[in-house]
Design a protein around this nucleic acid. Structure first.
Lengths: 150, 150
DNA sequence: TTTTGATAGTTTAATATCAAATCATTCATC
DNA sequence: GATGAATGATTTGATATTAAACTATCAAAA
């Protein structure tokens, strides 16, 4: 659904592009993560497991910065992953402010299992675009995301 | 941050494009809605006010379908808007299953006031792209969003 | 040694979000 | 008139998310 705003061409064009961006991102994200239901994971839990899988153990604040979530949120998501035995927390002995979060064996097994499913789902969704279009989309998103105008 | 996944070119390209899409969308959305703090509105509340402003009174399920939220979520967001006097609920006299949600005078005044600010913020963010690039982005997002491959 | 400034993580309060179950209502069918 | 299917809205339980306040910890400065 395009914007119903009766503004200038410039304005409606920007609004329409933004609305389409958000809608497409939400639709694609929902479909990509549908398989997580089968393993009782939420999108944020998956994001944490993914980050730890590829980057190795991280302290909570680094993890929060990496997946762009607040510290308070990170505490809760890690609490829940700890509760299901997928990650463990370990206080740094040298600087007790830091808590390192790492995958347990069970966590490693699970993410190793589901990540290829995730890749396949992303491939399937992104294949609506040609390889050139995917590169174009990435380029446009880079420009958008890095903009810091007020 | 691109994907750290060591897959085929096709796979990493799709993953990178998807990651960039999500990151850009989140970054832009956060910046666009920053001004809502000044009027004590959340993004979802703004979305409801915007829909009612342009489309007129709607029943809750139509509103939920329009802004792609679940019925249960809609109940809560409308509860909160009702509580601050920005919307009102009215039971349909002919079919008492339906509840029409409409803007109060105060709600109309507020959205009329802040929507131009929103438009300006969207314009500012989207101006990182040229008009041609904005149309291109919209086109690519249309293709992505409508894909319904399993 | 104490103070100060900074950082990490937690807690609190509030809101958002979902799926599933439930209740209320309507209408078609028997 | 009773029943069943469908629809609209709410409730329940769980998780996610933020901002802000708080506690714990560290290191540099006084």
């Amino acid at each position: 659904m395009a914007s119903h705003y009766a503004g200038s061409l410039e304005e409606t064009q920007a609004l329409d592009a933004y609305i389409k961006l958000v809608r497409a991102t939400e639709a694609v994200t929902t479909r990509i993560h549908r398989h997580l239901n089968t393993v009782d994971l939420t999108i944020s839990q998956f994001g944490v497991l993914e980050a730890l899988y590829f980057l190795g153990p991280l302290c909570q604040s680094a993890l929060a910065a990496k997946i762009l979530r607040s510290g308070g949120n990170m505490t809760l998501v890690i609490d829940n992953l700890e509760k299901t035995g997928l990650v463990r927390r370990e206080r740094d002995s040298k600087d007790r402010r830091y808590i390192t979060v790492s995958l347990t064996d069970e966590g490693k097994k699970l993410i190793a299992e589901i990540f290829p499913v995730h890749v396949k789902a992303v491939m399937a969704e992104m294949s609506a675009l040609s390889p050139n279009e995917q590169q174009l989309l990435e380029h446009l998103c880079r420009k958008l995301g890095k903009s810091d105008c007020p």
